[in-house]
Design a protein around this nucleic acid. Sequence first.
DNA 1: ATTCCCCTTGACACAAGTTTCCATCTGGTA
DNA 2: TACCAGATGGAAACTTGTGTCAAGGGGAAT
Lengths: 181, 181
Amino acid sequence: MDPAERGAVSERFARLCRERGLARTVQRRAILGIIAERTDHPSADQVFEAARERLSGVSRTTVYRVLEMLADLGVITKACSPGSATRFDPMTRRHHHLVCLRCERLVDIVDERLGRGVELPAEQARSFLVHDFSIHFHGICAACRRKARAPQKGSVAASSSARKHGSRRHKAMKKEQRRKR
Amino acid sequence: MDPAERGAVSERFARLCRERGLARTVQRRAILGIIAERTDHPSADQVFEAARERLSGVSRTTVYRVLEMLADLGVITKACSPGSATRFDPMTRRHHHLVCLRCERLVDIVDERLGRGVELPAEQARSFLVHDFSIHFHGICAACRRKARAPQKGSVAASSSARKHGSRRHKAMKKEQRRKR
DNA sequence: ATTCCCCTTGACACAAGTTTCCATCTGGTA
DNA sequence: TACCAGATGGAAACTTGTGTCAAGGGGAAT
């Protein structure tokens, strides 16, 4: 997100806080800043790690609370891929997602043309107030396609356990880091 | 899902089991049956509650494992709404979702016309193998719009805490029920 | 129908993610 | 500056999901 856009987000946040009588605490500003700077979709834990570097003593609880509050305000959005932690996304332009069914990686696609002409059928549009939409493409990413070359027999079990071990290894690593500090 | 469709799902499951040498245990059949009967998108825990009624002694572990296995087979699909547990969907036809940002309700939309012409940009299509896509409409459902009429000031805090308390109350209730048995 | 092997289950433990509770602190207003 | 509603920090609890392993059961061969 470029600086001008970050400024706009920050101003929108200030306005919404004023309107609703919410305090603009250092924690809230810092956390919003962290998300606005990043191009990935950090999980709450990743935001917490980043927040700790500029706000010593910030608590995990606060990070979760602030993220929830920012999402409620509509300043950021929650994204999710099945089976993993909620991820947070600065609210910017309309964008879509690639979701790898194997490794659960999540990639943004920003493309104006994509989704042109998509509209909620009239029947639902009467009762449901649409803010926005996004298209999720499910499939297999390049890395997983390369990896999938080798196993042929028992591919269901193989792919499933491969994914789980990968995910576990990652989680264990994070935990280790957390305990060290 | 109508009975004919349920039959087709069950047959597809049988065929896939035979092909891969997987057993069609009572647990697996019951759990698939539960999901095929429901029109909501039950979470693993909701499936577990339902499974307990027709299979006394079924374990939570088994329910999770079977759901994972059915999703791997492609007999059911995993869906997720941000911040809540993974949900399971018997629908394997292409379909789209309405997601209420307030109450996190998830509603299916089946409409052939919707999404016609949606295609992944060539740049991504080279590296990412698309199986399918679905469109998520984010907004506010009719029930939440009605509820939102009353509060004007501090509506964010109000709606947020309303959702959380509702959710918590529900979870606490479930826990209570679980312990009673 | 019986046997046997291997897949599957149940029970328990535990990890990760998230929320609750409550005492303490602070931003924003008077 | 003082005040106070609202926000934070820290511990603990809770939910969701996974790993392990002994015991049980499905289904193919007999």
